[in-house]
């Protein structure tokens, strides 16, 4: 029952987004198919999440990406993270938390006029490396920072 519902949802969602995007001429069909990538988001470990999201596990480390996160987060329920990329043609920024039950928190696909800086609040279950992965000119780059969490924010 639930499975069916999810499938139906996925297909209808995918269909509607695809239609809008293609008619607007904004996205290539390949990018459209990436709509909520469950293989990446539901992956339980970092390597699986990276493989699902990027098809590769070890993006090149780059000092052109700035990851701003607190060294110590008192409350893991809301940790403010800012990722900025100075890499030319940055078109996507992803945020991953290595020790979360589902490491991939978000992928932000940027438009042509969008600056390569994103701030958001993430949940962290425990102390972990936070990893930013940037897609620029078709290549993947990353940087990471350890965030110590005093009180976890993923419940359970």
């Amino acid at each position: 029952m639930d499975q069916q519902r999810r499938l139906l949802l996925k297909s209808t969602l995918a269909a509607s987004t695809t239609g809008v995007a293609i008619s607007a001429g904004l996205l290539t069909p390949k990018a459209v198919l990436a709509a909520w990538n469950s293989a990446a988001f539901e992956a339980k470990d970092l390597n699986a999440a990276m493989t699902g999201a990027f098809g590769a596990t070890a993006p090149e480390e780059s000092n052109q990406i700035e990851l701003k996160a607190p060294e110590v987060a008192e409350n893991g329920a809301s940790v403010t993270v800012t990722v900025s990329s100075k890499l030319a043609k940055t078109n996507a920024i992803s945020i991953l938390v290595q020790n979360n039950a589902q490491p991939l928190s978000a992928t932000f696909n940027l438009g042509a006029t969008t600056e390569a800086t994103i701030t958001t609040n993430i949940k962290m279950g425990k102390t972990s490396d936070v990893i930013a992965v940037v897609k620029a000119d078709g290549k993947l780059y990353s940087t990471k920072q350890l965030v110590k969490v005093t009180i976890g924010g993923c419940g359970g």
Binding site: A21, A24, L26, L27, A34, A35, W36, N37, F41, A77, S78, V79, T80, T82, V97, N100, Q102, L104, S105, A106, T107, F108, N109, L110, G111, A112, T113, T114, E115, T117, I118, T119, T120, N121, I122, K123, M124, G153, C154
Partner: peptide
Amino acid sequence: GNTVLDAELNSTISTNPYIKFQFS
């Protein structure tokens, strides 16, 4: 008419999601 941000989020984004971004 342009998509300036297309965000795919997981449940590990905080309650009441906050996103800051810029575009020209």
